[in-house]
Each structure stands twice: as C-alpha cells, then as structure tokens.
Write a protein that binds this DNA or RNA. Structure first.
Lengths: 158, 158
DNA sequence: TATTTCAACGCAAAAATTGTGCGCTCTTGT
DNA sequence: ACAAGAGCGCACAATTTTTGCGTTGAAATA
C-alpha cells in the first residue's frame, strides 16, 4: 500500500511542498509521470490532506505564542459541547485538544504582544462557557517548530 | 507594505496551498499576472516561508499525540544548550518550546500507540540530558487542529 | 513450468500554469 | 501642474502538469 518510494515522496513534500514532478522523480528514481501519479494517489488516498503556505507569525505581527490550560466547572456532555463550539468559533484560538491529566483542555493562541493577549483574554477566553480555571504559559523561545511528522518509520507493505 | 488584497491572498494560500494564479486572482479581484507577482513578493519578503504538504498523522500510523513537560536539574547555559541540541536531534520530537511558568520545556511528540510511546520514552526522552522531572499528557481528542494563523488583523498600511 | 493478469513504468503529446516584457494608469511628492 | 514610481492587465514564452498508450515484470493460475 505504501512503499519506500512513497515514503521518500512524503518526506520531500512535507518539507518543501509542491516541486516539479520531474525533480521529485529524479530524487526518488522515477520518471516524472510515474512520480506524478504516485503523488496524486497519495492525495486521493487521504495520506496527503492538502498543501498549505507556511506563514511566519512574526512577519504578520503575531509575536506571542501562548498555551492556555482550562478546566471546566462541569463535565457534562452539554458543557463540553458548548465549550468546544465556542472554541471553534474564535480564529485566534489556533489549536485545542482535550488532554488526559488534571487540566481538561489545552489551547494555543497567537497574539501580537502582551497587550493584545490581554484583549484576547477578555474578548474571547473569558467568554468561553463553563470555565472553572484557566492557566496561561507563554512561549519564551521556540527550540523546534513543527516541520512535519517523522515519516521514516511508516508501515511498509512491499 | 501589505494591503487588503495581500491579506486575502495569505488567507487563501494558508488554507488551500498553491492554486492557479488565475483562480486566486479572480477571488481577490486581480489579473493572474498581478496576483502572481503579489505572491512572489510575499515569498521574497519572508511572509510566506514556503509550502508544505499536510499529512494526516493517523494515515501514516501516528495516532498518538503527546505533550511532555520537562524541567531540568540545572539552568546553566550549558545544560540548556545540551538539552536543546539533543531535542533537535530526534525526529520524533515534533515541537519544543521554552515556557514561562513552572516546567521549563514543553515538547510534543508523535507515536504510533502507547507501546510505541513507551519505546520513544526509553529511546529518546529518557536520554535527554539534565532532566529533573518529566510529565506527559496524552491528547484524548483534538477539538481544533492548527490550520493557519488568523490573518484578518494584520497591520495594513494602505 | 508455461501462461495469464495486472499494476506500475517510461515516453511522448496535449493542456494548463507559471513566469516575464511592456505599455498604461493612477497616486504621491515637488 | 508635472515628473516619478508603483502596480496593473495583456500577450507571449517557458515550464509543468496531465493523460494516452505500449511495454515490462512480478504474482497468480493452470
């Protein structure tokens, strides 16, 4: 279903996005057309969800990266649903997951600066329904930013 | 330096990656060539760092998403540097940041399953130098995955 | 072991997209 | 009012993507 060549392709595509099929083909030892068909198959098969431009947050004025851990007053189905749909409605909330452990939810938000985070805090965070406690942690420095999944260890079947 | 049209372009490109300039141009009210030049300028200006294929972690066998908070035994320059370069050397560590607050570092790792996380734990996490304490939190459910920065509120200068 | 089958490949041509030169227009500054 | 410069659309050239088709090699079948 996925062989060594596909893995190489995924690795290349994950790092440097769309490149001419001829170039990729050369790197993985395939003709341009064969390579092209492989890529289409990976897309159609749902391995590759799509392509995106990677923006540099600082260059668009979002210099502050904050994790916010939140626990709710109630764990009822309704409480969770209400909270989650509120979360989804704010673009400033970049990510949100339900975690094992003490705090229930963790979300990541982007802000221009501390003052902007304060605005965000009042404008959206404080409006999330059912919040019992909230704790923020600022990113002081990014040691390693997400640049793709390790693709070397995929199940091969060929 | 960046106007309303660029913002629209960034938004489009961030969501749906490279699309024909003619199509983007139509959406933002520009000819294909003008649109094309705008995009090149955004790339050259460092606003767009590049393009990447977005892989679906489950489809490549990485079903487990874990946050690991780590505090070090020493805060010395050397200790931090040693820790950080070790972190960078492991592909399984997807992200790492230095945080304000109690725990020093937070990293995010991807594993196939719990058994694989155990392997990871022994194979790389436990080999990170200078670790005093480590605490893991598993993602039970992703409410919102990262899909780009909010681009609406960029400083416009036109 | 010979034969059939089928997926995947490479080549080549067609279709689409990107990349570029150029003249025009509108805004800004003097 | 006028010169200068940024940004636009058009037209065309250069690349890249996409598809048709015949071939090849491995696995299944007889």
């Amino acid at each position: 279903m996925i062989d060594r060549i596909d893995i190489k392709l995924l690795d290349l595509l994950q790092r440097h996005g769309p490149r001419p099929a001829a170039e990729l083909g050369e790197k993985v030892g395939l003709s341009a057309s064969a390579c092209h068909r492989r890529i289409r198959a990976l897309e159609a098969g749902g391995i590759i969800a799509g392509y995106t431009a990677r923006l540099v947050p600082e260059r668009i004025g979002l210099g502050l990266d904050v994790f916010v851990d939140i626990s709710l007053t109630s764990q009822s189905e309704e409480a969770l649903t209400a909270f989650e749909s509120a979360v989804k409605s704010y673009d400033e909330i970049l990510e949100c997951q339900l975690l094992s452990g003490a705090s229930d939810y963790r979300l990541r938000v982007a802000a221009r600066n501390v003052a902007d985070f304060d605005r965000l805090h009042r404008h959206c965070l404080s409006r999330l329904p059912g919040v019992a406690a909230m704790h923020s942690a600022f990113t002081l420095r990014t040691i390693k930013a997400f640049e793709g999944y390790p693709v070397s260890g995929i199940d091969e079947r060929r």
